[in-house]
Design a protein around this nucleic acid. Structure first.
Length: 289
DNA sequence: AGCTGTACCTGCAGGC
DNA sequence: TGCCTGCAGGTACAGC
């Protein structure tokens, strides 16, 4: 599931390949995916066609493609969105990871195609159509609903002290708190499960009941699993691929996520699966206290 | 205000 | 084989 490490992996790829390219044309297959200030798609596209890509930013699980004319394209890939870059040199890599869809781009899940300078293309694919792309003035990015309320995020402004104060205020299970993007930005179901496993903390415990020492341990465990996710290029459990269409490797290192019925890597007892706030939650009932 | 439950979608696994 | 059901999870929003 795309979380901070997965979205950052995409950002790094886009940063490498998109910066300096000009948007020549845009083809939209599913209108609800790409929106902008106007109700007219044609008017919205006028804000980006002919402009040059200058920078790719990430805020939590959101991406922002900045253009040289004061406009940006904000992107949220949600669960199954993919941003895949292709030019004459990169085609082959993308083909490998897209065998499920016949190894072709575009495919039936391609909803937007950006035609770029130098014969390059950027495809937005999304099986479940939950994701979105929004054309917006660069100055207004932080006014968008998702970005406006985004909490501090690991490796940026989330210090250990800040994390502690957020946890102390949480009158909800610690796992549910970790998933709340308004409190902390960038963590999703995989890394919350694995972080809690690494910190040996029961996901059901009320956040404010954690001791200072446990909170500190959890902070470092979260950074540890997120770092592993970054190093391995993200988790490709469902549909995640990087900007070249290649899968990541973190799924080989899952500690607790998706491990129900398997042996706990630490104590050997069985990993259990429960539901917490409607989400699959995996933990070791023996060593997560 | 803050929390919970559900909608948004589609593919896929499992049961019969 | 094929139909049906439930499940997967990030965010937005209705409702308590």
């Amino acid at each position: 599931m795309p979380e901070l490490p997965e979205v950052e992996t995409i950002r790094l790829g886009l940063q490498k390949y998109l910066v300096g390219k000009t948007i020549v044309d845009v083809e939209v297959g599913l209108a609800k995916i790409l929106t902008g200030p106007s109700a007219s798609l044609r008017v919205n596209l006028q804000h980006i066609i002919g402009s040059k890509i200058v920078k790719i930013q990430r805020f939590g699980k959101g991406l922002v493609i900045d253009l040289d004319n004061g406009y940006s394209i904000a992107v949220h890939i949600k669960l199954t969105g993919q941003l895949i870059y292709q030019d004459s040199h990169t085609k082959f890599a993308a083909k490998l990871a897209l065998q499920k869809t016949g190894g072709q781009l575009p495919n039936k899940f391609t909803h937007v195609i950006f035609r770029l300078s130098q014969e390059a293309k950027l495809f937005y694919n999304d099986i479940r159509q939950f994701g979105w792309l929004k054309i917006v003035k660069t100055d207004d990015i932080q006014k968008l609903p998702f970005f406006k309320d985004l909490g501090p995020e690991p490796f940026k402004d989330l210090t250990q002290q800040l994390f502690s104060s957020i946890v102390r205020k949480g009158n909800i299970p610690i796992k549910v708190l970790l998933l709340d993007q308004k409190r902390i930005g960038g963590i999703g179901n995989i890394y919350s499960n694995d972080g809690l496993f690494d910190a040996m903390i029961d996901p059901r415990r009320k956040a404010k009941d954690l001791s200072e020492e446990e909170t500190k341990r959890l902070y470092h465990s979260l950074l540890k699993v997120l770092k592993k996710g970054l190093e391995t290029g993200g988790a490709s459990e469902i549909n995640f691929v990087n900007a070249l269409g290649e899968e990541g490797g973190y799924q080989k290192y899952f500690l607790a996520y998706g491990q129900d019925g398997k042996k706990c890597k630490r104590c050997g007892s069985t990993i259990k699966k429960i539901k917490l706030a409607g989400r699959g939650t995996y933990f070791c009932p023996k060593c997560q206290k």
